[in-house]
Amino acid sequence: MSEPLVFTFEVDGENFTSAGNASVAVKKKLRWLGFPPEIIRRVSVAMYEGEINMVIHAGGGVATVTVLQDRIDIVLEDHGPGIANVELAMKEGFSTATDHIRDLGFGAGMGLPNMKKNTDSMEIQTELGKGTTIKMIINL
């Protein structure tokens, strides 16, 4: 493939039950493109966690997935409150999610660690009151 394939999704911050739609759509596309199941799984998990984070914390955002010859890039961009302490947020078990979110089975403090675990590189740019951009790369 010579031209990169770019998929862009609006993540709806108001609709918690639709969270995951973008990840499922990406999974389908990657499966259709013939990627190995393990790569599809890593992209899906990393993206889903990002989607959930955008819904829980940031009122939604935009997810862009770019399929290149040697890697898949995932960029998650939101205009939420930003992350106050990235180091702390990266720790397994740390979460600022509310009790309501925990009742739904989230807020285990595994989102960002899962994203890091499933990608080859992850970069977080965040500014309080402005928003967060997370860039992840999965090498093929």
Binding site: Y48, E49, L104, G105, F106, A108, G109, M110, K117, N118
Partner: peptide, 8 residues
């Protein structure tokens, strides 16, 4: 039962 835990 923790969805993120299961995801990982």
């Amino acid at each position: 039962d923790l969805l993120s835990w299961v995801m990982g």
